[in-house]
């Protein structure tokens, strides 16, 4: 679960302490911003590994450049700027590398994500999350259970299949359909469309 919300002023106070050499304050900044930043990065990354790498890189750079941050209530957008730049660099690198490897799927995803990050510059993590929560609340109970098993309990597909006495294929396809429903709901700003298993 995300930590309690910190106001921009709270974050600035932490940033000022961190600028003064208080490492625990820096860790507190990470704790307070991690969730939103992860959502932002997840909008443009192409894999979980890439999300983790960008998150780590963002905070390393943020630590180094912390002295340049001017406390005006914009810490989250400052971190978001670093993260976006890192994602861009990652996507560029992967597109070039994957073109050499002939990895069509990864290249296609990197290309799509690159176009998205160049196109929309206005993803607000809080809004994206609130919409996704609304969409999740609209799911049928059995669909919600699948989502909980997969993402909250972090169980792999084959384990969920064993639990529900279904085939792995059924679980994977059901999750596909639910994600499609959620994507449509997200793109319509939280309005559900009836397409669930």
């Amino acid at each position: 679960m995300p930590p309690a919300t910190s106001t921009p002023a709270d974050l600035d106070r932490l940033a000022l302490r961190a600028q003064g050499g208080d490492h625990e304050a820096f860790v507190a900044v990470v704790e307070a911003t991690e969730h939103d930043l992860r959502v932002l990065v997840s909008c443009y990354a192409t894999s979980l590994a890439m999300v983790d790498e960008v998150m780590q890189g963002t905070y390393v750079i943020a630590f180094e450049k912390l002295s340049t941050y001017e406390a005006r209530g914009t810490l989250k957008s400052w971190l978001g700027g670093i993260a976006r730049n890192l994602v861009r660099r990652e996507l560029d690198g992967r597109r070039r590398q994957q073109a050499l490897d002939g990895e069509v799927l990864d290249q296609v995803l990197a290309q799509a994500a690159h176009e998205r990050i160049e196109r929309d510059d206005d993803v607000v993590p809080e809004r994206e999350l609130a919409t996704l929560r609304r969409c999740l609340d609209e799911l049928a109970p059995e669909a919600r259970r699948l989502i909980d098993e997969r993402y909250v309990a972090d169980k792999p597909v084959h384990e969920i299949a064993r639990l529900l006495q279904r085939t792995s294929n059924w679980v994977a396809v059901s999750l596909f359909r639910i994600r499609k429903t959620l994507h449509l709901c997200l793109s319509r700003g939280g309005v559900t469309v009836k397409e669930q298993p």
């Binding site: 999300v51 999350l129 989502i147």
Partner: peptide, 24 residues
């Protein structure tokens, strides 16, 4: 496919707390 990956990652970010612990 891109929509699937994006929604998968968003769900992971929203619902899975393990990754956050690792980042911290």
């Amino acid at each position: 496919l891109a929509e699937q990956v994006r929604t998968h990652l968003l769900l992971h970010a929203l619902l899975n707390g393990g990754a956050a612990c690792e980042t911290v």
